[in-house]
Each structure stands twice: as C-alpha cells, then as structure tokens.
Design a protein around this nucleic acid. Structure first.
Lengths: 146, 146
DNA sequence: GCAGTTACTTGAGGTTGTCAAGCATTGAGG
DNA sequence: CCTCAATGCTTGACAACCTCAAGTAACTGC
C-alpha cells in the first residue's frame, strides 16, 4: 500500500507481499480442507501419507511432538481414512497408511487445492515458470530435509 | 522432487512449490514470534495494530470470531503490550492500541521477520523485483479487502 | 420510546500444541 | 544372558485458539 523507493522499503515491501500471498495460500488451504470436513492438520497429514509412514516420520515432517500425531491419527482413523499397521522387524513402530477411502479423499483434496490456488488462477504458464524458478531458489536454501 | 513435462504436472509442481515456500514462511514467522515469547496469533495481532483499531476490525482482519479477539487481547494486555480504550461517540467500541512497550515490540518483530525471510536471504534485489511483480499479480486477484 | 442491530464478553466443547511420565521393544556392552 | 540406555507410541495435564450460542450494554431507525 505504501511502496517506497529506498532499498529498505523495497525489502520490506517484498516481504510484506510474500506474507500476503502466504496468508492467502494458507487460507485457501484451510477453506478447501474445511470443504472436506478436515482440519488443516488432518489435511496436511493426509497429503503427507501419499505412501505409508511411521508415526515418528510424520511427526518430523510436521515439526511437532510425537504425542500430537497420536490424536490426529486417532481422529483420522475413527473416520476410516487411515489405519495403523505393524512393521515387520520392529514391533514398536506403527505405520500409518491410507485406506481406500483415505486415498480417494487425498486425491480429491490435492486436486481441489491446486485448482483453487491463487497462483494457478492468476498467472499464465510462462509466468508460472518464472515464479517456479524463484520459489525453487527460495525453497532450497538450507531447510529442505524431507 | 518429481517434475514432469506434462502441463498438468507443471501446474501441480508449481502449486507444490508454492505450498513449500508458504510452509517455510509460516514456520519462519512462528519461530520469530516464539523468540519474542509470542504465539503466532498474538504476533499477527501486534502487526495489525500499527495504528489503533476496534476489536471488531481486528476480528475481520484475522478472519475469526470476535470472541476470539477478547482472549488474544486479554493476554497481550496482561503483558502490557496493548491497552483497551474507549472511542468517543460509541461506548460499545473498545479500541485496541499498542502501548509504548507494544510499539517497541512490534518494530523489533517486524524487522526480525523481514530479516529472516527466506526470500530476503536467498534472492538478490533484481530477483526480488521480478518476484514482487508476480506475487502482486497473484495477490491482487479478488481477495484484497483490507 | 421500542425494536432491531451492533460491540464485546462469557462459557461450553473440540483440535492442536507442549511437556512429563509410562510402557513395550530394541540394541549395545559386559 | 542380563542390564541399561535409547526409541516409538500413548496418556494426562495444561495452555492457546477456534466456533457457536447466549448475555449485556449501547447505538439507530422508526
């Protein structure tokens, strides 16, 4: 709203814009998740479970305490989207895997998110390519484990 | 991780990348907020209060129920960062305004967020200008009130 | 002045987040 | 083999947020 010509203002404006788009993307995600009667975290978990994974891995991926995953898995399991299974060789580990219903839900969710993304609706193919290059550069830096 | 050459894959990859950067920005925000002993929502509220505003306006800005703001304001007020004040002409309205401490905190918070932003650290000035143009285009579309 | 709306608060109920403690299992060393 | 530390998951306590419904006070329109 108040762009400046100084270098400091430039940096601030870019950051503000990124925050705005981030907010929008986040809200878009929440809205789509709500459409499927999912909380954001439940949706995140579903998306992460494209292939089965130990609960520990999911906790790492979501950057939260393992005890948190117990509850999220409980709620998804009670609705039949996810199942706990043992893993051969280590009886401590519980693998989380999508059920048939869970897989269907996950695909629909993923598609809906892509469709509703502001970037998809506002930018053309060439612009997206440019954006992709910049985002990749910003995304790679340091924080890319998993 | 698995870029494709199809148009559909292209769209999906771009959306995934945007989600990744969004995640990163969000995490960055949470981490910085935690540095100041603030929850993400408390930090958001502080940033929104650059100038005093009625609680209702804050609720609209944060897209949440008004009752939610009561609690957030309570916690910020109990720590001396915010104060409730009456507004002339309408005794229903409570204006939220930053205290001196709150203003100091807000500036420090804002600066820290900009500094730590992945976009600031990974992209140079020219790249940021390109990014800004693309983000602006994505941000403007339809959802720009407030 | 009366009815309806608006601003804020309060309380109930659910999800998420942390931390500390507990249980079972695994793995490494003596 | 046995002990002991580390690991994976669960549970319980507690705080923050979130929504909805209900309540109070104050404004607005008629």
């Amino acid at each position: 709203m108040t762009p400046r010509s100084t270098a400091l203002g430039e940096a601030r404006d870019t950051a503000a814009l990124l925050m705005a788009v981030t907010e929008r993307t986040r809200r878009n995600f929440e809205d789509v998740a709500a459409t499927f009667d999912l909380t954001p975290q439940q949706a995140r978990a579903l998306l992460a479970l494209e292939s089965a994974a130990p609960m520990r891995a999911l906790a790492d991926h979501m950057h939260c305490d393992a005890s948190n995953i117990t509850g999220i898995a409980d709620r998804l399991e009670s609705r039949g989207f996810v199942a706990r299974a043992a893993r051969d060789g280590d009886r401590r580990v519980k693998m989380l895997a999508l059920t048939a219903d869970g897989k269907k839900l996950r695909s629909a969710l993923e598609a809906a998110i892509v469709d509703a993304s502001p970037v998809m609706t506002a930018l053309d193919s060439k612009e997206r390519a440019t954006l992709r290059a910049l985002l990749a550069k910003a995304a790679i830096t340091e924080g890319s484990r998993t």
